[in-house]
């Protein structure tokens, strides 16, 4: 419609102008000049219309942009970070009356340095949530989580996550080289360190057999790996840089019966000498642990050795006894 305006203006000028010429107020030259100048205005006015539409679009888009940018990160570095005293850097995890929403309602639990503790509980009991607290991927709503005697909220985030390595149930690979996938957070890791981590995780063999070794692209855009291979890479990712605390969310879940034994062997190597909190669904994983904790109703309801708990705790028997599976 903006085309209409200059056209109308030209018509008016033409009418008034020719009238002016006929009455002798204007010369023909002036009229021609006026019409010519009006035609120059034609494009600027038309493009003004276009500009207005585009500006509207850009305005809507920038509102979306700020919707995202205005969200404040909830988990940030403390203003005055603390770090544990040198003698305390041994990898001790302590949960003190931990509450998170309505899921965890007063968890008290200590994992001693060098110990492997298995965490068992029904689906939805909050096991994954509890493990997320150690590396401060989630914050408690009440109570506190301490690593080496210092509240995780007092640690500098980067330091905490260097000390605590968390491996997840679903090993996520990125479309990049094996090296990049293993050294995820330490891009300058030397090849030796990568190979060492792969060795510990029992993944060295199959990586060596890949067509381009460490340089082979894996993930969605590269070679596809089996569940067992992915899980071992996720383990290698956790142990590179030898963190003193390992948090493993069901490390044997995505395995078939053929690879379970290999990963189990790798796990035994990985768990030696570090403090570990391991979520377990199966008796085979539980057997890697020194002690087992049962999480139910938002609390730790039982704590002890696998055989003791099997004998004493009904919840535990229901969760881990194999009897009813084979019928």
């Amino acid at each position: 419609m903006l085309v209409l305006l200059p056209e109308a203006a030209i018509t008016v000028i033409l009418a008034l102008g020719t009238y002016g010429v006929s009455t002798g107020v204007l010369t023909v030259g002036t009229l021609v000049a006026a019409v010519t100048i009006m035609t120059y205005l034609y494009w600027p006015i038309a493009s003004l219309g276009w500009l207005l539409t585009e500006a509207g679009n850009a305005g809507a888009a920038s509102r979306r942009f700020w919707e995202v940018m205005d969200v404040e990160p909830a988990i940030t570095d403390p203003e005055v970070p603390e770090s544990p005293a040198d003698g305390d850097r041994r990898g001790r995890i302590e949960f003190r009356d931990v509450h998170v929403g309505t899921v965890l309602r007063g968890v008290d639990l200590t994992v001693e340095p060098g110990e492997t503790l298995a965490l068992v509980g029904a689906t939805g009991a909050g096991k994954t949530l509890l493990t997320s607290l150690v590396g401060r991927l989630v914050d408690v709503t009440d109570g506190s989580v301490l690593v080496d005697g210092v509240d995780v909220r007092r640690w500098r985030l980067a330091d905490l996550r260097r000390v605590v390595a968390t491996a997840f149930e679903e090993p996520v690979l990125i479309s990049a080289s094996v090296r990049e996938n293993v050294a995820l957070g330490v891009p300058d890791a030397p090849d030796d360190a990568v190979w060492e981590a792969l060795e510990v995780a029992g993944a060295r063999g199959f990586v060596e057999a890949l067509p381009w070794g460490l340089d082979t692209r894996i993930g969605e855009q590269g070679m596809s790996l089996s569940g067992g291979q992915r899980q071992r890479l996720a383990l290698a990712r956790a142990v590179i840089g030898r963190p003193p605390v390992l948090v493993l969310d069901d490390p044997l879940s995505a395995l078939d019966v053929h690879t379970e034994a290999e990963v189990e062997a790798a796990l035994r190597r990985v768990l030696g000498g570090v403090t570990a909190l391991v979520v377990a669904h199966r008796p085979s994983t539980v057997q890697l642990a020194d002690r087992v904790a049962v999480l139910a109703d938002g609390r730790i309801t039982a704590l002890g050795r696998h055989t003791e708990l099997l004998a004493q705790d009904a919840t535990y028997r229901d969760l881990l006894s194999a009897e009813l599976v084979r019928s």
Binding site: G135, L137, L157, A158, R161, R162, A165, T166, F168, V172, I174, S175, L184, G185, G219, E220, R237
Partner: peptide, 15 residues
């Protein structure tokens, strides 16, 4: 897309 899908690993491993 990959970074956001794997955001837990990204944060846990300081990537």
């Amino acid at each position: 897309v990959e970074s956001m899908n794997g955001i837990r690993a990204v944060q846990a491993y300081r990537r």
